[in-house]
Amino acid sequence: MPGSALLSAIAETAINRVLALDEDSQARLLPLNGKRLTLYIDQFPHALTLVFSQRVDVLTELLEHSELVAQLDENSCCIRTSLEVLPKLTQTSQLTQLIRQGELHLDGDLHIAQHTAALFGQLDIDPQEWLSHYTGDVIAHQAGQTLAGFKTQIANALARSRAGISNALTEEKPIGVGKLAVMHFNDEVDALRDDVQRFEARLNALNNEQ
């Protein structure tokens, strides 16, 4: 069984589940109805095609990039990019800049790419709302509060770490002892230890003579 079919099935399920959590996503899907966007990612062997309707169907694209580009119509768009650039695609305003920088190759209708970026970039998911369907409002609210508390604590811990590192780099490092000074100090300690050992040996020898 081609693994690509399994991966596209997982991607399709995940995308539609996530979109279902944001009730405004249907409105953002409207301008994409009947359109398709194909995404070639350099690191992946197969491209994925997103077919938009009231939902998003994900297909594995078996055509090579050049073959697909030759077949593009007014309802299609094809993007070729790398994995690192993928997160930036959710910001509609960056698309043109990415194309100019050569990090993104786009063929077909730019509006499809922009609407797709908006579809995912403007996702507004309320986890409490989702959880309340399964647990009821009270438990969902409490879970949300607990989660928010954890989130704040983690954010505070990260902020403290950042401040500590920043302080170490800007304040302590300049007045700290340099590597060469430490090496010289260590050499001096070694020399002193050798002197003490020699002195101790000399004393023992003198004591034995008496």
């Binding site: 069984m1 081609p2 079919a5 099935a9 297909l59 078996l62």
Partner: peptide, 15 residues
């Protein structure tokens, strides 16, 4: 479902 999905991928169906 995966068998059918593979068939869909190979179908080349377009708008």
């Amino acid at each position: 479902r995966l068998w059918k999905r593979y068939a869909l991928d190979c179908s080349g169906v377009r708008a």
